[in-house]
């Protein structure tokens, strides 16, 4: 599978990573190279196989849906690049 510049642009946007226009062709080449490597998987007959969902066969434990932790607003916000008045602050999202 060969990735073109347009697809590389789309993938970068899906990943929310800014890639400069001039760097897109090189990115497309790298991604193509990696995807070609992955295409070896097409040699395998997987028609009778279920995709693996759990590494070890175990039932996930259940727990009561109750609050077990909290009341630590200061700690939650302590690492935020921009926190104001007890909230995370971000650029304007609604015009």
């Amino acid at each position: 599978m060969s990735i073109d510049t347009e697809t590389a642009r789309k993938v970068a946007h899906l990943a929310r990573i800014r890639v400069e226009e001039a760097d897109l062709p090189a990115l497309a080449g790298e991604l193509s190279n990696i995807l070609t490597f992955m295409e070896q998987l097409n040699e395998v007959d997987v028609s009778e196989v279920e995709p693996m969902t759990s590494v070890t066969p175990m039932r996930l434990k259940r727990r009561a849906d109750v609050v077990t932790d909290g009341d630590m607003q200061d700690k939650v916000l302590s690492n935020a690049p921009d926190a104001r008045e007890g909230f995370f602050a971000v650029p304007k999202v609604v015009e």
Binding site: M38, L41, V44, E50, P51, M52
Partner: peptide
């Protein structure tokens, strides 16, 4: 084509 196929191959490796 990629993700599900890889998970199937993973089951075979196991």
């Amino acid at each position: 084509a990629y993700y599900n196929r890889a998970r199937k191959v993973r089951a075979l490796i196991k």
